[in-house]
Design a protein around this nucleic acid. Structure first.
Lengths: 270, 270
DNA sequence: GTTCCGCATGAATCGATAG
DNA sequence: ACTATCGATTCATGCGGAA
């Protein structure tokens, strides 16, 4: 079942039953001093803005559920702003357990260089839980042995397959396929994913592989996945493709329309 | 010039002149780690333990200098401990600017499988400065396009060539060779380095490439680099090889002896 | 003299057991 | 009830012995 709601998640979540959601994966609008644009929230006010929404998320989340929060830090006046640190501290004060800090290491190199810093190539994926013993299906996200194999696979899938199709027929590609039959190992807490540029119409906050990973890891088929800032619906697509129910909320009707269209194109596993 | 001092850096630093150090790169004993060697610092007391030392570091650091602090988080009772967050906050309260948070993505990390987490494959490298306009030689650390390819090539050349010799004949290896002749680009704030196990006698906190990177980026030849927890002297080796002066401090005479021996084996650039 | 295979070992964490 | 200790688990790497 798919539900897409237009409005502020703080109020829209009232329609969801207590403890009905297995996983929340979301990427709220990043803190931004420019208030005109969509979702702009001043960094200094970010925590106060976010906490009441987190309170609602806490209510609808199952006791063994997980909340994955993708946030990016922001540089203000040449310094990293501390709102992410403050957010973690505040969430803990509100009884959330800060279980893990996943790192999304972004592969795609966007041009950009500043006088005193390089390109920011990573983002936080903070994992919060209600209880120490949450549900986790580790076997669902195993990867081929050897990180270097994963890296090559990732690169094959974005650039090389398109530009050098012949390579995929070469011994190398065949060997990669073989490795899949070898031993699989558990991944680490660093997600080494390329940023996605597939859909030109709407830029997604994160690549499909990111919600996919967490959905496989923290839910089972039939569970409900929630994205309270769903934007163009990347989380919804991943959820539906994996046979999970989805609830998506966004303040902009335009975004919900795009998400609806986007999600309609995919189907659950056979 | 190389100075190696045995003792607590908090007191030993008194022998250094104000504003005489261009760069501090260090990896203090992690909270509760290496109990048998350093005596261990409880995570809850880590900030209080560290701050007075940071005060001395601040005194000897030049106004345009940089302080790189490599710390690892620790899991306590199934939750990430917040001492790193507290440390950042405390440093800011003591007038340090938290300029950047580099991520050291460890290619090989300690194995282990637990019911509710995977391996921790990254560490913080916190960058603190006194002023907004610190010195940074960005061109000194440029890397070939597709840095990952170079890394892979290095790996191919030792282990993989032997175990998977056919790989070197594949399209992959040929492509890597081509990239080596391409343009150089600026790196990102994610350092993708393998942990070093080269010296079996003493395990280093970080691979040589890590201090090397920061020394090239933040200092010039003839500048002084300081490591107040120098251990077996990895930072010193990098500094000397790059023609910088070095001051290393450690509480254990045994470590200083190893560092002295280790550093004596290398020489400045011709 | 090479190449290959086996194995010990880490900046770890959890759960159980013992004091 | 709370702390301390120990065994089980995991995998990239380098070294040494064997083929």
């Amino acid at each position: 079942m798919i539900r897409l709601l237009t409005g502020d998640c703080e109020t829209e979540l009232a329609g969801l039953a207590d403890e009905s959601v297995a996983l929340v994966v979301t990427s709220p609008p990043y803190a931004d001093a420019r208030k005109n644009i969509y979702g702009g929230v001043h960094p200094d006010k970010y925590v106060a803005w976010f906490l009441p929404k987190a309170e609602q998320l806490r209510r609808v989340l199952r006791p063994d559920g997980t909340f994955i929060l993708n946030v990016k830090e922001k540089v203000v006046d040449g310094e990293r702003h501390t709102y992410v640190l403050e957010l973690i501290k505040a969430m803990r004060a509100h009884d959330w357990r800060w279980t893990e800090q996943w790192i999304w290491h972004k592969r795609t190199s966007m041009p950009g260089k500043w006088p005193n810093r390089f390109r920011d190539a990573w983002e936080h994926c903070l994992q919060f839980n209600k209880r120490r013993d949450f549900r986790m299906n580790q076997d669902a996200v195993m990867v081929p042995i050897g990180d270097w194999a994963v890296t090559r696979m990732a690169n094959l899938s974005d650039e090389d397959k398109r530009r050098r199709p012949s390579d995929t027929e070469s011994g190398f590609a065949r060997k990669v396929a073989n490795w899949k039959n070898r031993d699989m190992v558990y991944p680490t807490n660093v997600l080494h994913l390329a940023t996605e540029c597939g859909n030109k119409k709407h830029s997604a906050a994160f690549p499909l592989a990111l919600p996919e990973f967490f959905i496989k890891l923290f839910t089972q088929e039939g569970d409900t996945v929630l994205d309270p800032f769903c934007g163009s619906g990347t989380t919804g697509v991943a959820a539906v493709q994996l046979g999970r129910d989805f609830v998506g909320i966004d303040t902009m009707a335009k975004h919900i329309a795009i998400a609806r269209e986007y999600i309609a194109k995919v189907s659950p596993p056979a």
